[in-house]
Structure formats: structure tokens, C-alpha cells
Design a protein around this nucleic acid. Structure first.
Lengths: 203, 203
DNA sequence: GTCTATAGAAGGATAGAC
DNA sequence: GTCTATCCTTCTATAGAC
């Protein structure tokens, strides 16, 4: 399907996604979205009543995409170490293709914390922990991962993957100055991060 | 010195800092800044010609504050392990007092990457590496830290400290749901992060 | 230096023709 | 469904009195 074959609503949505990710809610302009979609401003309001509605639609789609990435880890029939390697490889690869998502998400959650709170309140965290615990009881004990320090561990893994993209302009400038390349750094990080974490938890 | 004793220019600057950190460049309103400073909009333009000038002044001050935190590590007469523990404790403590700086910085560097590039181009990274290398030759070798993988290592440490604050609304929601407390999680992280990193590099 | 009043531009939203 | 024209509010910035 080529760009011009797409239905108007979809073209608007895609254009809005680009602009909101690029500029954020406050910086985005309806005129800019209309231009990229190849239509006029009035049509935006015909399909999505207000800028706020349009933004919400885009935000929900993107947040959904992010959360979906965490799912397979609980399904796959792998050891805990394999799951950690699998997650980091998959997640960093996903962010390589969507490098601006971290700063978009991290910015908008601060502008409107309630939006993300409602999404999270729908998740049954106890059930997730019980699943993890039953699948990896021995390994969790051996690695000293408990329900109490799980947030420390999970945010460490998430930060390993997300932070380099969130701080990309800083890191890329430093790499440039050292004669290195940001893309190589990211590619290498899939393995580095996994090794680092495994090393840290193995006694 | 009480709030009312402060000179007007300083009151404007402080109010602007608050508002820009809270709302970002695009979301900030000159009226809001004037109200918090207890003066009227015209005075903002008298002291700082435009919104852009005012923002730049605030941004430079904050970026400077962040970079200053990295300095003492090269001066202190400590082992590498002690420096890692020292840095994480100090940096996380600094962010406890300024929890919104990470999202502010990480957001604005994407909106205007050139601003941070210019700051970084002024730093002599080779000299920093040479200093580090001469101070800790043995330890760096033992821990397998080279000039090539230094960016991986440094961004891992930085992410350990910064990411929890950048993702605070998400993490706090999850903690809340588990019956835990975000502030306790942060306090505990000073030690957890240091232990984790030391464990990872010690063979 | 500080204020009131207002200019001037931009942006979100709607009316109404086709 | 799509367009042009336009309303109306918001916001930055300036003019001019004190």
C-alpha cells in the first residue's frame, strides 16, 4: 500500500505520530500535521475533534507498543539468564528502529502522570510476580532476586536499554569527540548490557 | 535573604527556572513566570529581551550544575571502587533534591541538540581519560575497562542514577501498586546501584 | 525600574459551500 | 468527506505613562 492509497484518517494519524514524537504535545502544530498528511486543518478536526483527542490516540498506540515488548519474556520457555539476554537484544533492536520513543514517553509522563498511572493500575503485578516466581524459583534464589528488590533489578535492566536513547544527543556528542560511532555503541550494547547484568547477579 | 529582598532580576530568574523545569520551553508561559516572580510581563522583557533569552540563561545554569557533579571524582584520592560508590551516593542525593532535572535536560537536548553539542565540544575528553588512566591503571586493567568500552561503562553508571528519576511517574505507579514507596526505593538505590556495578566488574 | 494598555502574530477550532 | 474563509483566544512583545 503506497502513501497515497491510505485512507485519510490513517494518514492523519501517521502524520500526527511523527509530529508529536518530534515536537511533543506542546510543541506540535496542527498546521504541521495537516501539511504532512497532505490535507487541511479543518479535516483534522473532522476526524479527531481536538488536538487533545488526536494526541491521546497517538499516545495510547505508542504506550501499547512499549508494553507489548515485555510480554514474550513470560511466555518463552527459557532460563532466566536467557530471558535477560533475549529481552535486551529485542528491546534495544526495537529502539534502534524507534529511537525517539524513549524521550517522547519520558517527557509526556511528566506532563501528564495520570495518563500512565491509569494504564499501570490495570496491570496485575502480583500475578506477574507469581508467574515469574513459579517459573524461576531456583534461579531467583540463587541470584538473590526477591519481590522486594525486583523494582531495583527491573529498572536497572530497563535503564540499560532505554537510557542511551533518552540521552542520545549527549552520548552521541561524546562519541563523536572520541572518534567513535553512536550506532556501533548501541549495537554493542545488546551484548554488553546482558553480560554486565549476568555478571552482577552471579556470585 | 528573604524572597522579597531579592533583586528583581534574580526573582525573575528563579521563577523562570521553576516554570521551565515544570513545563518545558514550549509549555512555559511568560505570564506564569511573571506571576510567580510577583511582577508583570513587561518587566520580563525589560531584563531578558525574549522568552528564548530567558530560557537560555536558565538552561546554561542547570546544565552547568549537572556537569559540576562529575568533577570531584577525578580529584578525590580514592580507589576506583570508592569513587564509584562516592559518585552514585552523591549524584543520587543531588537528584533527590532536584528530581525534575533529568526529564528537563533529557527533553530539551532533543528539542535542541546543538545547545548540548557546543557544551561538550569544549571538554577535553582525552585529557580526562589520561587522568583516569594514570590514577587507576591497575584497577582499570583488572576490571577490564578500556578507553573503547568506557562509554558503555559510564552510561551504565549514569543510567543507574538518572533513569529512575526520568521514569519516575511509571516507577512510582508500579511501586504504589506493590505497596512500596518511591522515596525508599531511591534511598536504597544508592547502595544497590554501587553493589551491582562493583559485582559486575569484579571477576 | 515598574506599571497599564495594547499591538501583532499564531494557533486551535468552527461555519458553511461544494 | 473535503475545502476555504474566518472567528476567537492565547501568547509574545512593545509603547508610553509614571
Amino acid at each position: 500500500m503506497t502513501e497515497t492509497d491510505k485512507q485519510t484518517e490513517e494518514r492523519i494519524f501517521d502524520a500526527a505520530t511523527e509530529v508529536f514524537i518530534e515536537k511533543g504535545m506542546d510543541g506540535a502544530r496542527m498546521q504541521d500535521i495537516a501539511d504532512r498528511a497532505g490535507i487541511n486543518k479543518a479535516l483534522l478536526h473532522y476526524y479527531y475533534r481536538t488536538k487533545d483527542h488526536l494526541f491521546n490516540a497517538v499516545y495510547e498506540m505508542i504506550a501499547g507498543q512499549m508494553f507489548k515488548k515485555f510480554g514474550p519474556v513470560l511466555d518463552e520457555n527459557l532460563t532466566l539468564e536467557q530471558k535477560i539476554r533475549f529481552f535486551l537484544r529485542e528491546h534495544i533492536t526495537f529502539l534502534q528502529k524507534n529511537p525517539k520513543l524513549p524521550s517522547f514517553i519520558l517527557n509526556e509522563i511528566h506532563r501528564n502522570p495520570d495518563r500512565i498511572r491509569k494504564l499501570i493500575q490495570r496491570i496485575d503485578i502480583n500475578k506477574l510476580w507469581n508467574t515469574l516466581e513459579s517459573q524461576h524459583r531456583e534461579e531467583l534464589k540463587r541470584y538473590n532476586i526477591t519481590k522486594e528488590n525486583l523494582p531495583q533489578f527491573m529498572t536497572t535492566i530497563a535503564g540499560m536499554s532505554v537510557f542511551p536513547f533518552a540521552a542520545k544527543p549527549i552520548i552521541a556528542s561524546i562519541m563523536e569527540k572520541m572518534g567513535y560511532n553512536f550506532d556501533d555503541y548501541i549495537e554493542h550494547r545488546k551484548e554488553y548490557a546482558a553480560d554486565f547484568i549476568i555478571n552482577a547477579i552471579i556470585k
